[in-house]
């Protein structure tokens, strides 16, 4: 697996921490998923200290923490959020989200590139949530990103990989860059497909957290990314239009 800013992940699954029925189920889902990375965010802290309790729980998971800038719509707020996250979570990693459209949560790639440049220059290790656009990918790499995270489909939609053609093209265009399908995964088959395409990891949240049984779905996702990873390594056959008999014809008895 390609390294993420020098860090080799033990497992190609990155799992979000939102929307679980309870903290206990979140912890069990992480265990079942074998995820190597947990995404987290920063929100207003109340007098109840809920943020600290959550942070203690995440630390106990023993995974890499990837803070996000979810919900940010401007370069300024994303950059400020990143500064706050770096201090709080004590990591240079930042999942850079700059939302451009309210309904689709599509990234605003113009602001994304701008913010990525500012943060990379300041020593952040940026994981940009982007589209599958190759030129945007180039610009993000020029800005200093060493990871790209194209969406599979809109966040939380569970639609899977909307544009496998473009994702395949990304893999071919950026052979040395770690690529992560971030968002849109609904089923283990979607996650497996991303890995079969040669992606280095899959980042998902809703598919597990909102499943009827999150822990079981986490286990299913773990199996899926492993199957997909193995399949890509195994060099799969190319699809063809016509049948090709797998059973040898030679030696077949004459019985008609």
């Amino acid at each position: 697996m390609r390294a993420f800013y020098g860090t080799e992940l033990a497992n190609p699954l990155m799992l979000g921490t939102a929307q679980y029925p309870s903290p206990a189920i979140l912890a069990q889902a992480f265990q079942a998923s074998e995820a190597a990375v947990a995404t987290v965010s920063l929100r207003r802290e109340g007098a109840d200290g809920a943020g600290n309790a959550f942070w203690q729980m995440i630390r106990k998971l023993g995974v890499h923490v990837l803070p996000n800038t979810a919900g940010c719509h401007t370069v300024k707020e994303a950059v400020t959020t990143a500064h706050m996250a770096r201090e709080f979570f004590e990591t240079p990693w930042i999942k850079l989200e700059l939302i451009g459209h309210t309904d689709s949560l599509q990234p605003d790639v113009f602001q994304l590139v701008e913010a990525a440049k500012i943060l990379s220059d300041e020593g952040f290790q940026v994981f940009p949530y982007t589209t599958e656009d190759l030129i945007v990918g180039e610009r993000l790499l020029d800005a200093g990103c060493k990871v790209l995270m194209p969406w599979g489909a809109p966040i939380g939609s569970g639609r899977g990989l909307n544009n496998t053609y473009a994702l395949r093209a990304m893999r071919a265009e950026f052979p040395d860059t770690p690529l992560v399908v971030d968002a849109g995964i609904g089923l283990p088959s979607h996650a497996a497909q991303a890995m079969e395409l040669g992606f280095d990891a899959v980042l998902l949240n809703t598919a597990v957290a909102r499943a009827g049984d999150p822990v079981l779905m986490a286990q299913a996702m773990a199996g899926a990314v492993e199957a997909g990873r193995l399949a890509h390594t195994a060099d799969p056959i190319e699809p063809r239009d016509m049948a090709e008999a797998s059973t040898p014809v030679i030696g077949k008895a004459f019985l008609s």
């Binding site: 921490t17 995404t39 207003r44 943020g51 600290n52 979570f89």
Partner: peptide, 9 residues
């Protein structure tokens, strides 16, 4: 603004 850790995707 005073922020703490929160669940995120």
């Amino acid at each position: 603004e005073v922020l703490g850790a929160m669940q995120g995707g």
